[in-house]
């Protein structure tokens, strides 16, 4: 069964392209959220396998969202996304309860496949 994905990013254009990319690589996008609180609610309801989570969000940032998601009963695998590099966040990325980090420019089927455990 193909992994179910929720996309969290405030840029619609990015979400659209990410959805296309995911679907081209055998992931099924079951929901999209443009803000942190909305994402927590959506993930709680849909219980996806994977959440692609942008760090910069209009309300709470991706790190806080990741904390919330990790606390859910059916915690998904979270992959943090950012146009910036992981090192720009110091140790926050490695300290976060997430599966991994992908710089947005490098988002591809291959980078996703490497992180998502089937």
């Amino acid at each position: 069964m193909e992994p179910r994905v929720v996309l969290v990013d405030d840029h619609a254009a990015f979400r659209a392209q990410a959805r296309a990319l995911c679907e081209a690589h055998g992931l099924r996008v079951v929901g999209e959220a443009a803000a942190g609180a909305q994402a927590v609610e959506l993930v709680g309801r849909l219980a996806p396998d994977v959440v692609l989570l942008d760090i910069v969000l209009p309300d709470i940032d991706g790190f806080s969202v990741a904390e919330h998601l990790a606390a859910l009963p059916m915690a998904p695998q979270v992959i943090l996304l950012s146009t910036r590099e992981a090192s720009d966040y110091g140790t926050r990325v490695t300290d976060a309860p997430v599966r991994g980090f992908i710089t947005k420019g490098e988002l591809s089927g291959a980078t996703l496949a490497r992180l998502i455990a089937r």
């Binding site: 840029h11 254009a13 990015f14 659209a16 392209q17 990410a18 296309a20 990319l21 146009t83 947005k104 420019g105 988002l107 591809s108």
Partner: peptide, 11 residues
């Protein structure tokens, strides 16, 4: 962001 969307679209 625009550039990232473009890059992914091309990919």
């Amino acid at each position: 962001q625009q550039l990232v969307a473009l890059a992914i679209a091309l990919r």
